[in-house]
Design a protein around this nucleic acid. Structure first.
Length: 306
DNA sequence: CGATTTTGACCCGCGC
DNA sequence: GCGCGGGTCAAAATCG
């Protein structure tokens, strides 16, 4: 392929109806102390970041004033395209877009129902090809959960986030040497999924995309470790469904390293989308409400200058 | 031995 | 209609 889509971190034409994506870059390593030892001191661990004290900075960093929302509320679909098609389509500096759609909210249950139906469908196969993957009921529209994504600078792919996940698939990512892993929350009846992939433009960046909302609290065994760092994860599902929850957001951002003078940064059309102003990519993020976000992730999670 | 990961097959939606 | 790519399933392998 030609050109260098440095900012292409998400391309999901399959999910035009997605409810929200938030891209967060984080200069972070992992939660585990053991993994921290050998890392560059300028890196922050998840734990470190999440225990940061500069909450207000986060708010500012995200430009979290509702009235400052992007004047160009392009559709989520368009936003996806903008960042997804080889980075050829420049996006506006204020490229945040917020989807108001919540129609996927019912999908959790239907997901299970679908499975039931699928099982039925396969049973009539005669047993010959029992391995066959079941098909969905005809006419059933595939709907997706609200999603949001984190970009995390990390050496490990699977970042600890307080929940327990089971890997259920892995696929090669087009145009990337790094595979994408699919995880499902192991808690019963919780349909939350997440995908983890590594940016091939910058292998140090891990992109974690969450889909759905947990219908439970953090596993008790993990609360002591991460609950305090992820207050949002401790919210009840009801609390999480509010309009201010990041899942309702769509935020695009350029990697912070574009501004750090790092050698890997390029200046093509997409990588420079945030360079038209003096703001950092984070400062140009715009979220409708930062109250919960403040609870969720302290600003130091996102950035630390060397 | 139960839980989790690996991995190839399969399904689905979409673009051509 | 066909091929591609993304997503999921589930048997087998591996792990703790």
């Amino acid at each position: 392929m030609s050109g260098e889509p440095r900012d292409v971190y998400y391309n999901d034409p399959y999910h035009d109806d997605h409810r929200g994506l938030a891209f967060f870059a984080a200069n972070s390593s992992t939660l585990t102390d053991s993994n921290l030892q050998g890392l560059d001191p300028s890196y922050m661990s998840f734990a470190e970041c999440l225990h940061g004290s500069e909450y207000n900075t986060l708010a500012r960093a995200f430009g979290l004033t509702p009235s400052s929302a992007s004047p160009a509320h392009s559709s989520v679909k368009d936003e996806q395209r903008a960042v997804g098609d080889n980075g050829e389509t420049p996006v506006t500096p204020n490229s945040s877009a917020f989807s108001s759609s919540t129609e996927a909210g019912d999908d959790e249950e239907s997901d299970n129902i679908k499975k039931e139906k699928q099982s039925i469908a396969v049973s009539e196969d005669g047993g010959e090809s029992s391995k066959k993957v079941k098909g969905k009921k005809k006419g059933e529209k595939t709907q997706r959960e609200p999603r949001f994504a984190f970009m995390t600078k990390s050496e490990v792919d699977h970042l600890e986030d307080g929940y327990r996940w089971r890997k259920y698939g892995q696929k090669a990512v087009k145009n990337s040497p790094y595979p994408r892993s699919y995880y499902r929350c192991t808690t019963q009846k919780c349909t939350v999924k997440k995908r983890v992939e590594r940016s091939f433009q910058d292998p140090s960046i891990v992109i974690t995309t969450y889909e759905g909302q947990h219908n439970h609290y953090l596993p008790a065994t993990l609360r002591g470790n991460v609950a305090g760092m992820f207050p949002a994860a401790m919210m009840t599902p009801a609390q999480m469904t509010g309009p201010s929850f990041p899942q309702e957001l769509l935020v695009q951002m350029a990697p912070f390293y574009n501004h750090s003078g790092g050698g890997t940064a390029t200046t093509n059309s997409t990588s420079s989308i945030y360079q038209q102003t003096s703001l950092t990519p984070f400062q140009q993020l715009q979220l409708p409400d930062y109250g919960l976000l403040q609870d969720m992730v302290p600003p130091t999670f996102f950035k630390r200058e060397p």
